[in-house]
Nucleic acid binder design. Structure first.
Length: 955
RNA sequence: GGGCCGGUAGUCUAGCGGUGAUGAUGCCGCGCUUACAACGCGGAGAUCGGCGGUUCGAAUCCGUCCCGGCCCA
């Protein structure tokens, strides 16, 4: 870097030092960005700002310090994150005057750190949020975190276990204190990661699902549903997690196929007659809770058994054989032992047979055998352990008839992975059936749109047979259930604030319900509780319903569907009008990224390595965001390479834009003398913007990113810049140099704006290094396609030019011409239009194809001897060879001829078909005929060349 | 058991009735030409999962089978 650069840098460093005395204070949040690991570094007052080319007070910047040759993201990303914080970029207006765009960040769980999936979703959202903000729409992206009750408690429990401390030995208050400190730590790390990613959230509206106001919203929701009879308490079969000693909801159970031993156990006849009835079971340890053996009423094998009495093995308790249609006669021998407290089907059958006694639980909340129905020697044994002991005992008693391996679905707790114990217990439930129709209708009517739309099917299917939701949890960490009991009269009261005395008998004190609410019972209020509900706040008025929910489809039922049900119930409106589901990331071997497999990189490591912008870009391109996609080092390098390309492009532009160049307030006005490349690049930019906007409107994120990628790299860098170098160097005159600078600057500056929402840091840096107006690119106006003129002819003409260039370059390569050589070339254009393009663009073709001359061949004129021919749609091209025709050339021609001949044959066949001629639309017929003519023509010309070369002495 | 999604060059992917089937990456050849070797230029590489049907015409629509992934029970 030259002296000029050093001076400029020093100047900015002074500015930065000045700013240090006014540290940024975010409402309620720690201001300084932390090191990437989220741990504050001791001994430093605050971040050192190294502003190299920061925002300028005067607005219009002339030329900034030259960019360093290498793109090194770390320092510049930090610098711009701080600049955005200073500008309060994410802060949404309190009283917007026009329709808003709002998004609620799916609150990350305080259990863990931000993973790549979060970065993916946040990149998509930030792209839309930043674009919306630049377009002048009042924009809110509201951040927050989720207390994630059960999963946080599990994480803390595991953590404490390593220190030899057991959560179960602690009081509720102690547990909450431990979890709270865990939460503090993770909250800091999550917030840091969100800022390291460059996500433009409104920190002033930061929320937490356990903050006091949120607690009130949660209680309000509960009480309202309770009063409407939609929340009830009852004894039901629930999924019991014996490891965590709590009920969990159906959604928190994962089913997987596992092989078990299916035991055929003999229940001897009570009257002492030989034999008995053979019952198949995978859970012999539950036999102590048996109250009957059931068979299907139509099962001839057991017709004689119904009404008789058998003895339960090992305990000799007598139970009846009953007939019930609920028994599946194909399972085992068709006889089922009935254990009403430990199986839902058994319970249902039990209920249909009055007269049967209700046994005690023979398995306790921790999964151990219990009760005096269980022989003493088995009591206290874990259910899994007891299974083998009981099996052995059955064998010893001669009652184990035989056994077979049996593949069946086993439910495991999502959190603890313990096998779920179906358990009859008293819990709180939400009736879902009355809530579901509004949400289903919303999607059906298009009031809420799902992207990609295929998820609608899955959504409908689930909603249509939604089950009641068990919302009570027997853990410490969570919102307490706002229900109170009177010890005197047993009165039960649900109330937002704890009542002081019983509303029936006036007794006090009251006993609060010991359970807490399922985390999702607070999460399902997120889009409106964060905006102030149940109060009618201005935020709720201005920013609700939100515009978008961006999330993974794995929580469609847990969260998305429930938010819709809650929102329609409590507010009568949708919580959001669009849902975008991103895919699941896989590694390069196609495995799902997961902590468990250890193949899930820490996003912060990737940021440190390649920068947040590269990571953002890699997450949306080239693998489609809305499908499960591959993410690996190659993808990330690809993104980094692209950003380096952009970096270098701007470096090039910068070196050609002298001090004093005006910022591009509008597109340069072209004249009749303007060269094709200037007309073309503006038109191309315009069409890129049109397509880009269209893609974003359709949530085609990857296509949108691809459009900018190819425009910048292939159109702007590879073509426009290469063609314009002569003009920029001043070798085509000052007026053209001036115009070309203006076109280059306009195109580049506007393209940086387009790219900014996707890769905000590097674009901000680059934007500040070229002439621009304004303090921050993040606050610049979103470009309109109409700023540049339409020019379809220029678009076509440039394609013709580049087709010629590619043809000639190909001839050079095939014939192994030295890179430095400038051989003459000839062309016989295929038509007048083409001829005109070649005539006016001769200089461009000469320069880009590196040919010394381009002459036109009149019809009938034979091609120059010893030249290499190539026949394309745009004409015949000939390149002079130093040694005449070459074998390589002949081979290439023959190949081309064969390819075209095959095509021609296929085309002619189609034309010969009477059905095609009669039924194909006229324009298709005409196009096909033209194609056949063109192909025949080209085949003939190639044949001529081959024949000419084969003739001896033709040189 | 029920359902959904996908199967297109080595890999990933676009197209979803008329194309010479996108594009990226990887691969091969040439080249450090002062924005860029994290690059440029050129090239090779695909019977569009199999079979059958509809149609003048199928990667595209229908049926069926096979393979992979996911969800629900």
């Amino acid at each position: 870097m030259g002296d000029h650069g050093r001076v400029a840098r020093d100047r900015h460093r002074r500015t930065a030092d000045h700013r240090l005395r006014h540290p940024l204070v975010l409402r309620g949040l720690p201001a300084p960005l932390l090191p990437l690991d989220g741990r504050p570094r001791p001994g430093r007052a605050g971040p050192v700002l190294l502003l190299r080319a920061g925002p300028t007070r005067e607005g219009a910047r002339l030329t900034a310090a030259p960019l360093p040759p290498r793109f090194e993201p770390a320092a510049l990303e930090r610098r711009w994150q701080e600049a955005w914080d200073r500008a309060d970029l994410g802060r949404a207006p309190d009283r917007p005057s026009s329709a808003s765009f709002s998004v609620a960040l799916p609150p990350p769980n305080v259990t863990g750190d931000l993973h790549l999936g979060h970065f993916l979703g946040n990149t998509v959202t930030d792209l839309l949020v930043r674009r919306s903000r630049m377009a002048g729409t009042p924009t809110l992206w509201l951040p927050g975190i989720d207390h994630a009750g059960l999963s946080t408690q599990v994480a803390v429990r595991a953590h404490l276990a390593k220190e030899g401390v057991h959560l179960e030995d602690m009081t509720r208050e102690q547990v909450i204190a431990r979890v709270e400190s865990w939460k503090q730590d993770h909250e800091r790390r999550i917030l840091n990661a969100l800022r390291v990613g460059g996500f433009s959230l409104d920190w002033s509206r930061y929320r937490y699902t356990m903050d006091p106001a949120y607690g009130r919203a949660t209680r309000r929701a509960f009480v309202q549903l309770y009063n409407a009879g939609l929340v009830y308490r009852g004894e039901r079969f629930v999924n019991w997690d014996p490891a965590l000693r709590t009920a969990v909801s159906d959604l928190e159970v994962e089913h997987s196929e596992e092989t078990a031993r299916l035991l055929y156990v003999t229940y001897p006849w009570a009257d002492g007659s030989p034999g008995g009835i053979v019952v198949a079971t995978v859970r012999p340890e539950t036999i102590f809770g048996d109250v009957a053996v059931a068979v299907h009423p139509d099962d001839p094998r057991h017709a004689g058994a119904v009404g008789r009495t058998v003895r339960v093995p090992l305990v000799d308790r007598e139970v009846p054989v009953i007939a019930d249609p609920g028994v599946d006669p194909t399972f085992g021998n068709g006889a089922l032992k009935i254990t009403p407290r430990h199986d839902l089907l058994d319970f249902e059958i039990y209920q249909r047979h009055p007269g049967l006694p209700m046994p005690p639980d023979v398995i306790d909340p921790e999964g151990r055998l219990t009760s005096d129905w269980v022989p003493v020697r088995f009591r206290g044994q874990d259910r899994e352990e007891a299974r083998s002991w009981v099996t052995e005992a059955l064998q010893g008693a001669g009652l184990l008839d035989h056994e077979t391996p049996y593949l069946h679905a086993v439910g495991r707790s999502e959190r603890s992975h313990a096998v779920i114990e179906p358990r009859l217990s008293t819990q709180w439930f939400v009736r879902m059936a009355p809530l579901a129709p509004a949400a289903v209708e919303a999607v059906r009517r298009g009031e809420v749109r799902l992207y990609p739309a295929r998820w609608e099917l899955t959504f409908f299917r689930w909603m249509e047979n939604v089950q009641d939701w068990c919302i009570s949890r027997q853990v410490a960490w969570g919102h307490p259930i706002p229900v109170y009991y009177c010890p005197a009269c047993q009165q039960m009261m649900a109330a937002e604030e704890p009542p002081t005395r019983c509303d029936r008998c006036q007794q006090s004190p009251l006993t609060p319900d010991p359970d807490v609410l399922d985390t999702w019972f607070s999460s399902w209020l997120w889009p409106f509780a964060t905006l102030g509900w149940p109060d009618e706040t201005p935020d709720l008025a201005h920013y609700f319903p939100t515009s978008l929910l961006e999330t993974g489809r794995d929580i469609m039922f847990f969260w998305v569907a429930r938010m819709m049900m809650a929102s329609y119930y409590f507010l009568g409106r949708p919580p959001f009008t669009a849902v975008f589901f991103h895919g699941i990331l896989r590694d390069e071997e196609g495995r799902k990224l997961s902590k468990h497999l250890g193949n899930s990189p820490d996003p912060l490591d990737l940021v440190r390595d390649r920068g947040a912008d590269a990571l953002r870009f890699a997450l949306v391109f080239p693998n489609p965001v809305d499908q499960d996609g591959v993410f690996g080092p190659a993808t990330l390098d690809n993104a980094r390479n692209f950003l380096t390309k952009v970096w270098n492009l701007v470096r090039f532009a910068q070196s050609h834009l002298p001090d004093g160049t005006d910022p591009p307030d509008r597109a340069p006005v072209l004249t009749d003398d303007s060269p094709l490349e200037n007309r073309w690049i503006l038109a191309k930019w315009r069409s890129t913007v049109e397509q880009f906007d269209q893609a974003l409107r359709a949530f085609e994120i990857t296509r949108a990113a691809g459009l900018l990628h190819s425009f910048l790299w292939y159109d702007l860098a590879d073509r426009y810049v290469e063609v314009s170098k002569e003009a920029l160097a001043g070798r085509r005159g000052e007026p053209l140099r001036h115009e070309t600078r203006a076109v280059l600057l306009f195109t580049l500056e506007r393209t940086l704006r387009l790219l900014h929402p996707l890769v905000p840091h590097v674009t901000e840096e680059l934007w500040h290094s070229i002439p621009h107006r304004g303090d921050l690119l993040a606050l610049a106006r979103w470009p309109a396609a109409e700023e540049a003129p339409e020019d379809p002819e220029a678009l076509v003409a440039m394609e013709v030019v580049y087709s010629a260039i590619r043809t000639l370059r190909n001839l050079r390569t095939e014939n192994r011409l030295a890179p430095s050589s400038l051989p003459p070339a000839w062309v016989r254009p295929s038509g007048d239009d083409t001829a005109a393009v070649f005539r006016t663009q001769r200089a461009v073709i000469l320069q880009q194809a590196r040919v010394g001359a381009l002459e036109f061949l009149a019809t009938g004129t034979p091609p120059p001897a010893g030249s290499a021919p190539s026949v394309t749609v745009h004409g015949e091209f000939y390149l002079a060879l130093p040694t005449g025709g070459s074998p390589a050339e002949r081979l290439a021609l023959e190949r081309e001829r064969d390819k075209l001949a095959t095509l021609l044959q296929k085309t002619e066949q189609r034309l010969a078909d009477a059905g095609f001629r009669d039924r194909a639309p006229p324009e298709v017929l005409k196009a096909t005929q033209e194609k056949a003519r063109d192909l025949a023509d080209r085949v003939r010309r190639i044949e001529e060349h081959l024949a000419a070369e084969a003739t001896p002495g033709s040189e």
